[in-house]
Simulated assay, not measured.
Amino acid sequence: MPRRAERLAPVVEMAVKAEREAARQLGQVQAQMLQAQRQLADLERYRLDYQQQWIEQGQKGVSGQWLINYQRFLSQLETAVEQQGRSVDWHRGVVDKARDGWQEKYARVEGLRKLVERYRQEAQQAEDKREQKQLDELAQRVRHTQR
């Protein structure tokens, strides 16, 4: 490995580790966001079921106390849905930040890899030029000794 590329190896290794950790964290917060979304969907489904029960019970006739209890519970359920919606929004923000952090680290790794590759290519070109120069000098010596 060319010298400049060798010197970058520890930097690349650290950048790769940081990128992998950022990817792991992104996966973790995405899983948490999905869990929050599932909880919200469950609450919304429960609310719809409860409202359907209201319609069915209402057709049969309800007492005033039942209506008060229903409204109180529905209000609590609405509050829970709103809070869970805010939780989902918060988790989305966390995921966005984690994604941005991972993308930044990924871009750094890719940039470092390209730099290492450029250093390798430059070193190879320099080596090719050196070899060509040696071959040219050798060919010239052979011509001089043949005269």
Rank of each mutant, 00 (worst) to 15 (best):
R4W: 05
A5I: 03
E6Q: 14
R7N: 03
L8P: 02
L8Y: 09
A9W: 11
A9R: 14
P10N: 09
P10M: 01
M14I: 03
A15D: 03
A15R: 01
V16F: 00
V16D: 02
K17I: 05
K17N: 03
A18P: 05
R20D: 04
R20L: 09
E21A: 08
A23W: 06
G27Q: 03
Q28G: 08
Q28H: 13
A31K: 14
A31C: 07
A31N: 04
Q32K: 14
M33C: 09
M33V: 01
Q37C: 05
Q39V: 10
Q39D: 15
Q39L: 14
L40R: 10
L40Q: 10
A41I: 03
D42V: 00
D42C: 00
L43N: 00
E44P: 04
R45C: 05
R47A: 05
L48G: 11
D49E: 11
D49G: 15
Q51F: 04
Q52H: 08
Q53E: 05
Q53P: 04
Q53W: 15
Q53C: 03
I55N: 05
Q57H: 13
Q57S: 07
K60W: 07
G61P: 02
V62E: 02
S63A: 01
S63T: 00
G64C: 04
Q65E: 10
W66M: 00
I68Y: 03
I68A: 04
N69M: 09
Y70H: 08
Y70A: 03
R72S: 04
L74I: 03
S75F: 06
S75A: 14
Q76I: 04
L77F: 07
L77I: 02
L77Q: 04
E78Q: 07
E78W: 01
A80I: 00
A80Q: 15
V81D: 01
E82S: 13
Q83S: 13
R86H: 08
V88P: 01
D89F: 15
D89L: 14
D89S: 15
R92M: 08
R92G: 14
G93F: 12
G93R: 14
V95H: 01
K97F: 13
R99T: 07
D100A: 12
Q103A: 09
E104A: 14
E104T: 14
V109M: 05
V109T: 01
G111Y: 10
R113M: 13
R113L: 14
R113P: 04
K114L: 12
L115E: 10
V116W: 10
E117A: 14
E117K: 15
R118G: 06
R118E: 11
R118A: 15
R120C: 11
R120H: 11
R120M: 12
Q121A: 14
E122T: 05
A126V: 07
K129V: 12
R130G: 04
Q132K: 13
Q134L: 13
Q134M: 12
D136M: 11
L138Q: 13
A139D: 10
Q140A: 08
R141D: 02
V142C: 08
R143H: 00
R143C: 06
R143P: 05
Q146Y: 08
